[in-house]
Amino acid sequence: MSGLLRYLDHNASAPLLPEARDAMLEALSLVGNPSSVHAHGRAQRALLEAARDAVAALAGARRQEVVFTGSATEAIAQAVIGGARAFGVHRLVVGAGEHAAVHAAVAATGLPVTTMGLDAFGVLRIEDLVAALAAADAAGETLLVCVQAANNETGVIQPMAEIERRVGPTRHVLFVDAVQAFGRVPLDFGASATDMMAVSGHKIGAPAGIGALLVKSHCDGVRLIPGGGQEQGRRGGTEAVALIAAFGAAAKAFPGRHGAAGLEALGERLECGIMALAPDAVIFGQGAPRNLGVVNFAVPGVASSVAMMGLDLAGVSVSSGSACSSGKVAPSHVLAAMGIGRDIAGSALRVSLGWSSTQDDVDAFLNAFEQVLARHRQRRGRAA
């Protein structure tokens, strides 16, 4: 293994921002409960509310719309399970490429599900949503529509304006998983037709273990964890102030750490380099709007497990898909929904860049991957 490790798996978890680490350590030096009215409690409360302001600003939300949770997975469960209860939902409409956390929460409701398919580029089939809305209106049903703003595996950005235009004027409820869009794609939750939105801390350089559910005022009844009235009565349990303070610091620092133009340039360098090394490579989602700095690709015949082993030995960290499923044998459900065959899907690699990524990191990946391809071709030549 080379002496210098290169981390290119930001979609799984971003490295901790120095600003987030400093904010967390400062908060850990304090004592008290943010619900207490004495000076110690007020100091904790001040940190909590400053973080709420920062997270709200990055999401284009109002401060009172931010509910801190223990993770984005918890926020998703609260929105889906709690939302289904609160709104008397009859059926859920879910994108085929949603994160496993959404599919698990949907299954936990026990309600019927309608799936919106993906086209070959990974974009939701709007006609499936239109058909589901029409069927629900004819049956007098209430729907909870679950959409991922930007896919965690391919980086494909969904047509949210069109989806909001379809769902917003109706009585149906729209939940958006914005975990991979938060900080990377402009969000305006407060002015949008989205009812609930989940975001995560560790995707933007905060520690793992902190997330948030953004809710409009009519979603006050959407609860999952009862308790002592914390988070405006929307989520029980004493708030983890140190993690929340770090989340707020990351929300403030993240946008300026790597401008969109710089990250796009790195992504283009990465993608062009891959195609130069392997002209037969398939870039998943190519041709659709994508999250900057995410390249999910496959070189036919080069198994992802073999490629990842070679890259890891060279000190380069990437993934073969979602960090929540890449250790499993089953192929990506996202690629399957896009109509990608198992042979190509079995060669998928995801390289995701972020605030700490540099041109040297990209070049190190390309150099290491060139060696992976050379060994593959050598083995293939011996077998011929």
Score class of each variant (00 low, 15 high):
residue 1 M to Q: 12
residue 9 D to M: 09
residue 12 A to S: 13
residue 17 L to H: 03
residue 18 P to N: 09
residue 25 L to P: 05
residue 37 V to F: 11
residue 40 H to S: 11
residue 46 A to N: 02
residue 47 L to D: 03
residue 49 E to L: 13
residue 50 A to D: 14
residue 60 G to M: 09
residue 61 A to S: 07
residue 64 Q to K: 04
residue 65 E to K: 00
residue 68 F to Q: 04
residue 81 I to E: 10
residue 81 I to N: 01
residue 88 G to P: 05
residue 91 R to S: 10
residue 101 A to E: 12
residue 108 A to E: 15
residue 109 T to E: 01
residue 119 D to T: 02
residue 121 F to G: 09
residue 123 V to I: 12
residue 124 L to A: 07
residue 126 I to F: 12
residue 138 A to L: 13
residue 139 A to F: 04
residue 140 G to L: 05
residue 149 A to C: 04
residue 152 N to P: 04
residue 153 E to T: 15
residue 153 E to L: 11
residue 157 I to K: 03
residue 158 Q to K: 08
residue 160 M to R: 02
residue 162 E to T: 15
residue 171 R to N: 11
residue 171 R to Q: 14
residue 177 D to N: 14
residue 183 G to T: 01
residue 186 P to E: 07
residue 194 T to A: 11
residue 210 I to T: 03
residue 211 G to R: 01
residue 213 L to H: 00
residue 215 V to Y: 01
residue 219 C to K: 04
residue 224 L to E: 00
residue 227 G to C: 06
residue 232 Q to T: 06
residue 232 Q to I: 03
residue 240 A to Q: 11
residue 250 A to C: 09
residue 251 A to I: 09
residue 260 A to K: 13
residue 266 L to F: 07
residue 268 E to I: 11
residue 281 A to K: 07
residue 283 I to Y: 03
residue 287 G to N: 09
residue 287 G to I: 08
residue 288 A to Q: 03
residue 289 P to Y: 03
residue 291 N to K: 13
residue 292 L to S: 13
residue 297 F to V: 07
residue 298 A to R: 00
residue 299 V to M: 06
residue 300 P to D: 07
residue 300 P to L: 01
residue 301 G to I: 09
residue 308 M to P: 00
residue 312 D to V: 00
residue 319 S to Q: 09
residue 323 A to E: 12
residue 325 S to L: 15
residue 331 P to K: 10
residue 335 L to W: 08
residue 336 A to K: 14
residue 346 G to A: 06
residue 348 A to Q: 07
residue 348 A to M: 11
residue 350 R to K: 15
residue 351 V to M: 04
residue 352 S to K: 06
residue 352 S to C: 05
residue 355 W to R: 06
residue 361 D to R: 06
residue 367 N to Q: 14
residue 368 A to I: 03
residue 375 R to N: 13
residue 376 H to W: 14
residue 377 R to L: 11
